[in-house]
C-alpha cells in the first residue's frame, strides 16, 4: 500500500500521539466516565489504520502485522476468560467481582471492571485492525 503526500504525513505525525493517549484515557477511565473497552479499542485500531494509510507499508510487513494482530486478539480473549475463571476459583461464581472495590469515584475502584476493560480493548482493537488489514491492505491477485 502506498503512502500519502507530505502534508498528510506532517499532520499525522502531530496528531497521532494525542489520539493514542485519548484512546488509553478512554480505556482506563471506562468505569468512571463515558467510554470503556469497546470505544477505546476501536480508537486504538483507528490509530493503527491512520498510520498505515498515511505512511504506507510493504506487503511483507503487512503479513507479519496480520499475524501479530491475531495473536493480540487471542491474548485479549484469554485475559477476559481467565478473569472470569479466577472468579470461579476464588469466590465460587463465574464472572464474580472478587477484587476489593476501593473508594468510589477514584481510578482504583470497581474491582475487576478496569481489567475487563483492558482485555476487551485489546481484543476489539486487534480484531478490527486484523479485519482492516485483510480487507484493505493485503495485496492479493484477482484471478481470471
Amino acid at each position: 500500500m502506498k503512502g500519502m503526500s507530505l502534508i498528510v504525513k506532517t499532520v499525522t505525525n502531530i496528531v497521532i500521539g494525542f489520539i493514542f493517549i485519548y484512546g488509553l484515557y478512554i480505556i482506563l477511565h471506562g468505569h468512571l466516565t463515558p467510554g470503556g473497552g469497546f470505544a477505546g479499542g476501536v480508537i486504538i485500531a483507528g490509530v493503527f489504520v491512520l498510520k498505515l494509510l498515511t505512511f504506507g507499508s510493504k506487503a511483507k510487513d503487512e503479513r507479519s502485522a496480520s499475524t501479530q494482530a491475531s495473536v493480540w486478539e487471542s491474548i485479549g480473549g484469554l485475559l477476559f476468560v481467565s478473569v472470569a475463571f479466577l472468579g470461579l476459583l476464588l469466590a465460587g461464581t463465574f464472572f464474580i467481582n472478587f477484587l476489593p472495590k476501593g473508594t468510589p469515584l477514584h481510578l482504583l475502584s470497581a474491582g475487576i471492571i478496569p481489567i475487563c476493560n483492558i482485555a476487551i480493548a485489546i481484543k476489539v482493537g486487534a480484531g478490527l485492525f486484523a479485519i482492516f488489514l485483510a480487507l484493505a491492505a493485503q495485496k492479493y491477485i484477482i484471478e481470471d
Binding site: G36, F38, V42, V124, G127, L128, I131
Partner: peptide, 9 residues
C-alpha cells in the same frame, strides 16, 4: 453498545 461493534464485524 455490544451490538454496534458486532455490527461492524
Amino acid at each position: 453498545l455490544t451490538a454496534i461493534v458486532i455490527g461492524l464485524a
